[in-house]
Amino acid sequence: MDRDSLTYDRQAARPARGGRRAALRDRRVEIVLGAAAFAVLAIIVAMLVTVFARAWPSFSHNGLAWFGPGGDVDAQLRAMQQLQPLPGHSVYWFRAWPLIWGTLLTTGLAVALALVIAVLAAVFLTEFAPAPVKRVVDPAVRLLAGVPSVVYGLIGILAIAPFVNSHLISQHRKESVTYVVQLNGADLTTATLILMVMILPILVAITADALESVPPAWREGSLALGVNRWRTIWRVSLRAARPAIIAATILGTARALGEAVMLAMVSGGRGFAANPLDGLTFFFEPVRPLAATILQNSEGLSNQPVMHTMYAIGAVLLVSAAMLSLTGWAVRRRLGRYGIQT
């Protein structure tokens, strides 16, 4: 907690004029403000409790197998919406693995790609770009951060997906898998590419900032030893910026994890577990990450089983986001010990 140099205590706060009344009023203000803070705390605790409480039935009916594979997720959701359980299972039967796998795939690939591109872009901005070029590229990257997800989704579904459909997926490939799934351009590739563009600005901005904060003495020292600019950045500056890059990656992952709208529009709508063993077709198979699933089933939330299942998915997302924050905090603390600032 940050306070100024004066410790807050009754003595210091007692004014020379105004006497008891002013001190009382001061205390009242503190209580009011504290109540506001407490109210927010209460709301958030209520949110956590609600989400987990409503998620519980879905978990209790499925146990740990909730996270596992089994059956067709879409069929399971349909069964819940129609309140007609599939033969041999309860209406709550749900196996979320295809959704989890879809989330892991899109998030993982998007973050990995974005990291590489972001580091290159940040190095470009801080080291290689001449001033006039930098003045153009810097705002351009920040502008990318301002684009709302639904706009990305729109571009994806109206421009990128058809392009992928007609130019990257051959007719032969479509026919070879028709009996299992339709390939129509709304798939892993499109989703991952757009998601990557969405998290790029965060990564670039934080990495560029960290590179600029590297002490110039190190850069000068390395250049004076006859090491060229790129190797200097690679071995000294980026190394010094590592904690910031890790923090940025965690932020980007959290952002990707929570992205519902764009993915709902673009990733294919089918709860299909894309199989890497399918070779190149793997990249064109539809996926549906967790957050997008909630959004796409938002109509049927008055239905009990559906509601419990959606809350269960929400609980998984919340826990993941919280764990990411915790990881980020722990990483920054650990690396701070080696004298590298974040």
Binding site: A217, W218, G221, G226
Partner: peptide, 21 residues
Amino acid sequence: EVNDLRRRVTMVFQQPNPFPM
């Protein structure tokens, strides 16, 4: 070539600046 030169003519600065390695 400038890096060639700097390998043959090296410099030590006023403030010690060891790299974070």
